[in-house]
Design a protein around this nucleic acid. Structure first.
Lengths: 251, 251
DNA sequence: GAGCATTTGTTCGTATGTATA
DNA sequence: GTATACATACGAACAAATGCT
């Protein structure tokens, strides 16, 4: 009954573009857009809640709910007293980290094998000239860093190579899934290189050549031969090594 | 400076079990627990925000942020005037639906191929007696439903069969990923059966036998032969059919 | 259809803990 | 050490949709 002018209740509110019926959802979209477009790069502090609220023309409480959602999915991180920061561009990444962190490395490797095998085959039929260039460049970087025992550089180059042919598969969903898991591979790659001292150049060479040659079957087989040894290294009596049964190149 | 007793600022607050420093996060954990444990099954309405707040001893505003997070990840759905309802138990499901819904069916099929190929191989080495039983039962259901042209039943049985051998692979992460995408497969399976009239019994039979026989290589090959025809059906000049190059059974 | 209670949607104001300069 | 800026949390109010009578 008390007289009050502007408090409570959904008010008409334009939100930059595309005014939805749900303010919170619109705010989430707005924030997500800014993050995924690279407008707010990873590591950067985003405007304060008050600024965001003023900017968008909605209340602090509502924008707070939106931020909370993105914090929960792992895109943002809040530090009381400091501010809110971007920690990831992909919703999947945070999810995987929460789901994977404690789980067996072998589980992750098996998924990696799954994704990369089809990626290799698809890449062999869909790769562009740019892809081929990138592949060869990464291969060179891989050799150079391994030669001078630059572990960090080697891991980075290896990651880059794999990322490259996954991209060459031209499947956006596959790329997103793979990229989301990428960080989880670092540790495995590094430990394999350090413990065995084998940079697996021949296997990668064969893989890259098969992709360039447009030979999906051998690309898939080469890749599997290589990841098999990783799986064995992690520990696996269960997984059958394909190169013992099929031989290496010709089928 | 005005005297006030309980307002503002983080207060000590026990939250059932595991009191964190972050009330919102605790509330999220609490809700997630209830949902994933099946305490609040899918479809059910959860308590109102006020009840939740009172129950947990925190303010409605805070519990609301927690609920918002779960709404955003796809576990919950809010209907103004009615209440809040559980729509999914897995965070991945909602995420995939948002990411996949509009995308090419072929992209999804390629991921499916990736996951199922390793699942088949792993299942062949890890399957238990229970798995074998379930596999055979699903196979029977598949034949029966196809014979009487029960499309819905056939799709369900087919889904069940595939789900079964993915489970037999004993990789929790793989299972979760696959299950999250399951619903997206329904449409493809149905349309393939309706449009071609081919239930692919022989291919599935061969796959199941390879798994039971503990032959991972043939299991993977049989599966790929089968999914290849799906890919071709969706449209694909790019994907190489493995059975044309390798032949069907022996490698 | 009109009225009413319930429930979510949105906002404001205020107080407090925490980090930083 | 004391401002200051920021996130954290609470409480109370009103708006709008829904469902029931």
């Amino acid at each position: 009954m008390t007289a009050s002018e502007r408090t409570g209740g959904p008010r008409p509110s334009k939100f930059g573009l595309g005014s939805r019926t749900d303010l919170r959802e619109s705010a989430v979209d707005y924030l997500t857009e800014r993050i995924q477009s690279g407008d707010w790069p990873v590591g950067q502090q985003i405007p304060t809640e008050s600024e965001l609220a003023a900017e968008a023309g909605i209340s602090r409480n509502t924008i707070r709910e939106a931020v909370s959602s993105l914090v929960h999915t792992g895109l943002l991180e809040r530090r009381q007293g400091s501010g809110t920061f971007v920690v990831s561009q992909s919703e999947l990444t945070g999810l995987f980290e929460r789901h994977l962190s404690s789980k067996d490395r072998q589980d992750v490797l098996e998924i990696r094998l799954a994704l990369e095998v089809v990626a290799a085959a698809l890449a062999a039929t869909r790769r562009t000239d740019e892809d081929i260039e990138g592949l060869l460049a990464s291969m060179t970087a891989r050799r150079e860093t391994a030669d001078r025992n630059d572990v960090d550089g080697y891991v980075e180059a290896d990651l880059q190579l794999h990322r490259q042919f996954v991209r060459a598969a031209q499947n956006p969903l596959l790329i997103e899934l793979y990229d989301s898991m990428l960080e989880g591979f670092r540790e495995t790659i590094a430990s394999y290189f350090i413990e065995t001292g084998d940079p697996c150049h021949e296997e990668h060479e064969a893989l890259v050549h098969a992709i360039i040659a447009g030979d999906p079957l051998n690309a898939a087989i080469e890749l599997r031969v290589f990841l098999d040894s990783h799986l064995y290294h992690v520990e696996s009596t269960a997984w059958p090594r394909v190169h013992q049964e099929v031989g290496s190149r010709e089928v």
